[in-house]
Design a protein around this nucleic acid. Structure first.
Lengths: 340, 340
DNA sequence: CTTGGAAATGTAAACGTTTACATTTGTGGC
DNA sequence: GCCACAAATGTAAACGTTTACATTTCCAAG
C-alpha cells in the first residue's frame, strides 16, 4: 500500500542507501542521481516511516508532554509556550493527558516509550519519587508543578506561596479585614501552597482569620460558582475573595453579579494565573501573574538541554517567580484599555 | 542504556518470543515462565520500544490530530471530545499544529508518518484537494472545517451558515434594524459562511444592510476590541452586533463596557461557538451552539470506522447542525443561573 | 515403555530506515 | 593505456519488536 524506500530505489534505479542519502545528506550525491530520486519520491508520494527512522537512529526529535488535562485555558497557555520553543529547535510535541491518575500516567508513558527523546510531566497531585519509579532512568525528564524536594530532579515550580501571599496582602491593603478563599483541589500541591500563602498573608496583615472563610473548590467553574454562593451566606460577610485560579474567579464573579453584588465595591475579587481572558472581562481581573506560557517554554529549554548535553547537564529545581497584576476587580483602578 | 527485550529474555532465561508472548498474550505461556518474565521486566524497568512495535505490527493505535493552533478555548474543547472518544477505544492522540500554513502542515504530516493509524486535519484556510495532494492515499483521513465539495472525502463541517442566519434573525426579532458584524479571518471557510448567513438573515428580516456594518476581525480578542470601537463610531450606530466567535464577543463586550455602553440595552450582542466561558460572563452570551467537543468526538468516530473497516467504510461529508443558545446578551432573559 | 497429540517455547525473518565499510566509477596526470 | 585518488554508490547489518513455522516438552492412553 504505502511506498517504502525500496519502491523509491527501484523506480529511480539506485540503491536504498542512495535514496537515504538524497533525503538526508544530498551533498554527497550527484545531481543527476538526486533528480531521479526526487522525482521518484514525488511520483510515489513517499514519506519516510518515522517509526523506522526512530528505531534506526535512536533519535526522535519529539518531546513527550504529559499534562493533567488537555483542555482549559491554563493548559492551553502552557502548550503555547512549549509549542513555540520546541518549534524553534525543530522539535515536535507528543501531547497526552493523565487526568491526575497514576494508571493513566503509566499508560501514557508506555505509549511514548521509544517515540520521544525526553519527557515533560506536569502532575501536581503525585510526588516526584513516586513518578520516577515508573520511568526508564536514562530518559531525560522535566517535572512541572510536582511536589519535589531538593535537586534530585529537573523540576520547575511556580512560586504559588509568594503569589498568593502578595495578592492577599494587596487585598488587605485596601482595608479588607474579612477575606475569604475559594480553594483548589485538595491533594494538589499548587492549591496547598496558595492556601498557605493566603493564611500567612492574613496573619501578617492582621486580618481576621476564620476557618469558615476557607471554602473548598476543585479548580472547576461550577465548584467556584457554588462556593461564591456559600460566601454570600456568611455572617459577617467577607468583603474580599481570593480565588485559587482565574477560571474559578470568573465563575465567582458571575455568581456575585447574579446576586446584585457589586464588584469591587461590595466584594473585591482576585484570582491566580492571569489567563488571557482575565483582562477582557468586566471588571478586569486582578490576579497573580504566573507567566504560563513562559513556564512551558522554560520546561522545553531545560529538557532540550538535558537531551543534548547528557553528560554535562545539571539537574536543577527552579522556582518561577510570580507577580501580581493589578486591574479592576480589587478596586485599584478603572483602566481604559485591557493590559496586553 | 535502556533495556531491550533481549535483556529481559536473558535475565529470565527464555527466548525473546516468550517475553513478547508474556507481554502480549500471556494465556499461552505457563505460569512459572510468566512470573520469571514479569519479574525481569519489573527489575529492568523494561518498557517496549513503541517505534519498534509500530514497525513490526504496522499498527500504532494512535491518531494524528492537526489543528490550526493548540491554544484557545475552541481548540481546547475540540480536543476534549477527541481525547474522550479516542480513550474509550484505547487510542492515543498525537497532536500537532499547523498555524494555517501549508509548509507547517507538510512538516507535521512528515513527523506523523508511520506513527499514526489515521489523521484528523482541521484546516479552514486550505481546501481539501490541495491538502490531499500531500497525503499517502492509503492513510485514513477525516477533514474538519475544510472547504470540501461532494463525498470524495470523509469530512465534517459545522453548519456555519444556518447558525449565523438564525442568530442574526433572532437579533432582528428583537426589533434591531441595524445589526453589525465583526468578521472572522478572510480566507477562512467558517468565517465566510458566517458572513453569508449574516447577510441573508438581514435580507430576510428586512433589516438595513450597509457595507459599513461589516467590520474585519481575525478571530483574536484584540482585533475584536478594536472592531467594537469602530462600531461605536458609526453614524447611525448599530443597535446589535453579531461577532464571529465567542472569544471575540467577550472582547467586544469589554470594549462596550469600557465606553459605558449598556449590553443588551443599548447594544445587543451575540457570538458563535458556545465555549464554556460564555455562560459565566455577565451578561451571559447569546451564541450559536456548535457542540465543539461533539465535533471532536464525531471526527474520531468517523476516523476509527475508516481505520477498522478499510474495505467497507464509506466516505461522507457531514454537516453538524448548529443551534442558538439564548442567554442574556441579546436581551431575551435575565436568568438566575448559568446554563450547565 | 512407546506413541500421539497438545502445550510450550525457540528460531528466523519480517517490518523500514540508516550508515560503516566495501566496491565501483570517474578523472587527471604521466 | 595505466595508476592513484576522490567521488559516488552499493551491500550488509544494525535498530527492537512481532509472529509463522519449527522444535521441544509434557502428559495421558495403551
Amino acid at each position: 500500500m504505502r511506498s517504502t524506500i525500496k519502491d523509491v530505489a527501484k523506480r529511480a534505479g539506485v540503491s536504498i542507501a542512495t535514496v537515504s542519502r538524497v533525503l538526508n545528506r544530498s551533498d554527497v550525491v550527484n545531481e543527476e542521481t538526486r533528480l531521479l530520486v526526487e522525482n521518484a519520491v514525488r511520483e510515489l508520494r513517499y514519506s519516510p516511516n518515522i517509526a523506522a527512522r526512530n528505531l534506526s537512529r535512536s533519535k526522535t526529535e519529539t518531546i513527550g508532554i504529559l499534562l493533567p488535562d488537555l483542555y482549559g485555558e491554563f493548559f492551553s497557555e502552557v502548550l503555547r509556550g512549549m509549542d513555540r520553543t520546541a518549534r524553534k529547535h525543530s522539535y515536535h510535541l507528543f501531547i497526552s493527558s493523565s487526568h491526575n491518575n497514576k494508571a493513566e500516567i503509566e499508560a501514557a508513558l508506555r505509549v511514548m516509550s521509544g517515540r520521544v527523546d525526553g519527557l515533560i510531566i506536569m502532575s501536581p497531585h503525585i510526588d516526584a519519587a513516586s513518578l520516577n519509579a515508573n520511568l526508564p532512568s536514562a530518559l531525560p525528564l522535566v517535572l512541572l508543578n510536582c511536589h519535589v524536594e531538593g535537586d534530585e530532579f529537573d523540576a520547575i515550580n511556580i512560586d504559588n506561596y509568594r503569589g498568593a501571599f502578595e495578592i492577599v496582602k494587596h487585598l488587605a491593603s485596601h482595608g479588607h479585614k474579612r477575606i475569604a478563599i475559594i480553594k483548589g483541589t485538595e491533594k494538589n500541591i499548587d492549591a496547598q501552597e496558595r492556601l498557605r500563602g493566603y493564611r500567612d498573608a492574613l496573619e501578617e496583615a492582621g486580618a481576621e482569620y476564620s476557618k469558615a472563610f476557607e471554602i473548598p473548590g476543585d479548580f472547576t467553574e461550577q465548584s467556584s460558582y457554588n462556593a461564591a454562593l456559600q460566601i454570600l451566606q456568611l455572617k459577617p460577610r467577607p468583603t474580599a475573595i481570593f480565588v485559587s485560579n482565574d477560571a474559578m474567579a470568573i465563575a465567582a464573579l458571575s455568581a456575585l453579579r447574579t446576586h446584585q453584588v457589586s464588584v469591587p465595591e461590595e466584594i473585591a475579587l482576585a484570582g491566580f494565573d492571569d489567563i488571557p481572558i482575565a483582562s477582557y472581562i468586566k471588571p478586569s481581573l486582578t490576579t497573580v501573574r504566573v507567566g504560563i506560557s513562559e513556564l512551558g517554554a522554560l520546561a522545553v529549554d531545560r529538557l532540550l538541554d538535558a537531551v543534548r548535553n547528557k553528560k554535562e547537564h545539571t539537574k536543577r529545581h527552579l522556582i518561577m517567580p510570580t507577580g501580581i497584576v493589578v486591574r479592576e476587580s480589587c478596586g485599584c483602578t478603572r483602566t481604559v484599555h485591557p493590559t496586553p
